[in-house]
Design a protein around this nucleic acid. Structure first.
Lengths: 347, 347
DNA sequence: ATGAAAGCGCTAACAC
DNA sequence: GTGTTAGCGCTTTCAT
């Protein structure tokens, strides 16, 4: 069965088959007026018979409006997947389609701009950028950033109360009686990471405990990057009794490392994460963590984008100055979720 | 701040700025030869300075090859999200980009064909269809189906051993001592749903228990659709002591309903699901379920697609007849995961 | 009411 | 080596 790929049916096929011009077919499809009722019916019948559907690409190239919202991510991991679910929920019932994209080399810096340039203007009407690092404003389509880069950045943004969440996490450990608490940081280029570290420091300061540099490492928000720093901290003469990971993925990495090293959690070591992605509850024991409403972040980002898109439309349709969220910064609350990886220290 | 959207920089801008023709720019970008080294360097400098990135759309329209793999889904729910993670993993390190798409009206039947027609040929080189219902072969690009429609369908397919998984689920309940076991079916148009029901019937028959029609309902694989049938079964004079849901989402719906009705799980009612999506472990109590390797399904589907794409390439590059997976049917194993929602019946 | 033609951003023949 | 031209599938003036 070597290749017998049916040719895509194009508007030209429909026009030929219906005995009209492509312009007429286009008008029928887009419900423009100035078409005889009979013609319209006939064309529509042919469209159905041939199973024609207009190419998003050709249409977008020409009309510069596609009805598609893009969610641009570096990778499909648990966090961005939740964002996607939220974005999908926000778009349900609307006329907008949802397109999630991740290019080949997300490793290279500047993926945000590359993806945006590749897709904007011709494929997507607006975009949600998930954890973008560089976000110089002045893009060709409206953009909303989720959990973005540290620093100013003039883009509308949604994120969670990372500082408070981190404080809650460390206070929980402190309340349990821990004094040697290690921190496994995230990506230095992300505001969320910076704030979670700030929260760690603040909570420690609050308890009058000095920060020990030997207890601060980085795992880049990645599961596999947690192994080495965990092993290093555990090998210390005065090892930590608890570890706070900047996200759930790296907390899961700590659990992996602990299992490998024969360290029991939470008996020998308490672990707490951040995010509460669905897989956090599936670890053994289930992970204590700080919940952020990730799907809510996705929903909110799309909501803001829709507002921006509306404000951009034809004059008169423009949303009021008090349009919710446009050009603003939305922050969602965080909350402690105690599960099975934290307990009182044995010493 | 009313609109100041920067214009997208196009190949024309680059050409003008560099003082060459667009063709030259195109050749430089696509590394065609027959370009003076100096020119190439100069053009590349301009590209970088302007931050130019070629439009995926225009490029695809012209060259009919984009290097993008599409994953087409009706909705971003837990199952398709896991597929996406697997697909992303399979594509990591390759030159292919990944694009997940869901259009507005997934409710309407025939979304598979509509999405495919909209995107194929011009935007994506091949597609993975997640739980497609209608899949007449003869598409314009290579397609692999994940957990497809019941019936023949000439498409390459990946799925799990649904029949065996369902048998495992019901045997587990039987082994616990349950005799009144209800079934909450999935989408009648999906092979997986049909097989899970067949497994339910087979396991019951094995135990010599007749199927009671009053204990068989349908929840369409949806969480909210589980409420009514659950309530109905629980209101029976001789209610079930255990419920087997055709997927985790509807099992979670059963848990919702039980909580609402004051029925304790697993004391008063055992519940078992199917899929083991990450959120299954996060319910209270955590859901007993049948695990299928959903990410593995996504990885395998992309693997098959890549083979198909390779086989389609220029002659000589064509993969051997024994190319793994091409045009075939791959089935992954399923396995029982006992957690907290199943127990021995009280009566 | 309908069609011819231009053009969106790009690549691929083919000239020069 | 580089530019010119055509055309991918579509929408949109503008004629007719």
């Amino acid at each position: 069965m070597l290749r017998a790929m049916a040719q895509r049916v194009t508007i030209t096929d429909v026009a030929r088959e219906a005995g009209v011009s492509v312009a007429t077919v286009s008008k029928v499809i887009n419900q423009r007026d100035g078409i005889a009722a009979g013609t319209a019916t006939h064309v529509r019948a042919v469209v159905d018979r041939l199973g024609y559907e207009s190419s998003l690409v050709a249409r977008g190239l020409r009309s510069h409006r596609t009805g598609v919202i893009g969610v641009l991510v570096a990778e499909f991991e648990p966090f961005s997947s939740e964002i996607l679910k939220g974005a999908g929920a926000a778009l349900r019932g609307t006329e907008h389609a949802l397109l999630a994209y991740t290019g080949g080399g997300s490793g290279r810096a500047g993926w945000e701009h590359r993806y945006l340039a590749r897709l904007s203007g011709t494929l997507i009407d607006g975009a949600v950028l998930v954890t973008p690092t560089v976000l110089h404003a002045g893009t060709s389509v409206p953009v909303v950033a989720v959990d973005p880069h540290a620093g100013p950045g003039g883009l509308p943004t949604v994120d969670s109360d990372n500082l408070h969440g981190a404080v809650l996490a460390v206070r929980h450990l402190l309340g349990l009686g821990h004094r040697r608490i290690g921190f496994l940081g995230g990506r230095a280029d992300l505001e969320s990471s910076r704030l979670r570290e700030a929260g760690y420091r603040a909570a420690l300061a609050e308890a009058g405990i000095p920060v020990d540099p030997a207890l601060m490492h980085v795992a880049e928000y990645r599961r596999d990057a947690a192994d080495a720093p965990t092993a290093a901290m555990l090998a210390l003469a005065d090892p930590p009794t608890a570890l706070f990971a900047a996200n759930d993925l790296s907390a899961m990495g700590i659990l992996d490392a602990a299992a490998r090293l024969g360290v029991r959690v939470p008996a020998d070591l308490s672990v707490i994460g951040f995010d509460d992605v669905p897989e956090a509850a599936a670890t053994t024991p289930p992970l204590t963590t700080v919940r952020q409403e990730i799907q809510g972040l996705g929903r909110a980002a799309v909501g803001m984008l829709l507002t921006l898109l509306g404000a951009e439309g034809p004059a008169g349709e423009r949303a009021g100055d008090d349009a919710p969220g446009a050009g603003q910064h939305l922050r969602l609350p965080t909350q402690l979720v105690v599960r099975g990886t934290t307990a009182v220290p044995r010493r």
